[in-house]
């Protein structure tokens, strides 16, 4: 029994003095291996008389358990010490610059268009596009703008061949195409954002290439008041819930009645400022009830169907919304400028 006690004392005192995990493991190896002192004690057991065997065996078991316990404790101690040191050593200066990934910013016009699309898609409008090299027939004739009509003067057009083909001067021909394709017997909800071209010299406020966002709704009971409600939804989404809207009479060849749609100035809240030229109102689009001639030209019976159409200038929306003064901004792609647009917006 004293052997056990002595050995225990010896091991524990040595364990107490260990300085590293390795020393502990070496110590354990020394004493607890098959031929080590602890095994030797166990070997002694079989030579003892039965009574002693019982007592000695029990004592030996306790001793072994305590020893295991003690080693385990020490090992854990050193392991923790080691991991803590490692963690300490791995501590970094979190203030150093991050790894830069390149920006993926949208073109500002596309951003506005995507915003408008998502509002209209949620109201059931499909997003459609059509050819940019268009036939005079779709661009003008079907839309109640026959050859020689003064409305053609205002849209100085890039003709391509024999005045039959042109770079579309508006996105409205897409509406005509969709109506014709629908066969005159189905309701239509669509918007057609896209590029358009007119013979304007490029400067801060003019661009020979620009983008329109036009929309069309054809159904059996559609009124100017429905157009007003629809305009309210998009205007508030783009310019804030607190803006007000109004319609003013206007004139377009493919709508009758026609209106210009204004929003209350979001900059001055209607008090009058340079943005709204002191009127408190900003014109953002043109719209109206689809002219019966246009419906008829495109296969819809105006006695049964009515519709409204509207058109925004994407550049104008973006210039207003983001305070951009030069229309060329959209076509230059100055990465220093569009950097900021790689983000979400409420």
């Amino acid at each position: 029994m004293d052997d056990i006690k002595n050995l225990q004392k010896e091991i524990l005192s040595q364990l107490e003095n260990t300085q590293s995990l390795k020393e502990v493991l070496d110590l354990k190896q020394n004493y607890m291996s098959k031929k080590g002192p602890v095994s030797n004690l166990t070997n002694k057991l079989k030579d003892l008389p039965v009574e002693e065997k019982k007592v000695f065996g029990a004592a030996l078991n306790t001793f072994k358990q305590e020893l295991e316990e003690a080693f385990k404790k020490k090992i854990t101690y050193f392991e923790e010490l080691e991991i803590n040191e490692k963690l300490k050593a791995e501590e970094i200066d979190i203030s150093l610059p991050a790894t830069k990934l390149t920006n993926g910013s949208p073109n500002i016009l596309e951003k506005i268009i995507e915003e408008v699309e998502s509002v209209f898609m949620s109201m059931g409008y499909d997003v459609v596009d059509g050819p940019e090299i268009e036939e005079d027939h779709y661009n003008f004739e079907l839309l109640n703008i026959p050859k020689g009509h003064p409305a053609r003067d205002a849209q100085d057009t890039f003709y391509i061949k024999n005045e039959d083909y042109l770079l579309r001067s508006q996105t409205s021909p897409v509406q005509a195409r969709v109506m014709l394709a629908s066969g005159g017997d189905k309701p239509i909800r669509m918007i057609c954002p896209g590029k358009t071209y007119r013979r304007d010299a490029d400067d801060a406020t003019h661009s020979h290439q620009f983008m329109q966002i036009e929309g069309l709704l054809v159904d059996k009971n559609v009124s100017l008041s429905d157009l007003k409600g629809t305009f309210d939804v998009i205007a508030k989404k783009l310019f804030g819930e607190d803006i007000e809207t109004r319609f003013r009479p206007s004139y377009y060849q493919f709508t009758e009645p026609s209106v210009e749609t204004d929003i209350s100035c979001f900059a001055c809240k209607g008090k009058g400022c340079s943005l709204c030229k002191n009127t408190g109102w900003i014109t953002v689009s043109g719209a109206g009830i689809v002219h019966p001639n246009v419906l008829r030209n495109c296969g819809y019976d105006p006695e049964i169907w009515t519709g409204f159409a509207f058109g925004f200038g994407a550049e104008r929306l973006a210039m207003l919304k983001y305070g951009i003064n030069d229309i060329r901004t959209f076509y230059q792609t100055d990465l220093r400028e569009i950097d900021a647009f790689d983000r979400l917006e409420d």
Binding site: D126, V127, N221, S225, K228, T230, P257
Partner: peptide, 29 residues
């Protein structure tokens, strides 16, 4: 309607939304 409407005053129009059946819009083509 346009002549009567402009005398009636478009600013007097009440906003409503079209009532026809609809679905989520799609990207076409």
């Amino acid at each position: 309607a346009e002549e009567i409407g402009r005398l009636y005053g478009y600013h007097n129009l009440v906003s409503t939304l079209p009532t026809g059946a609809t679905r989520q819009g799609k990207y076409i083509g």
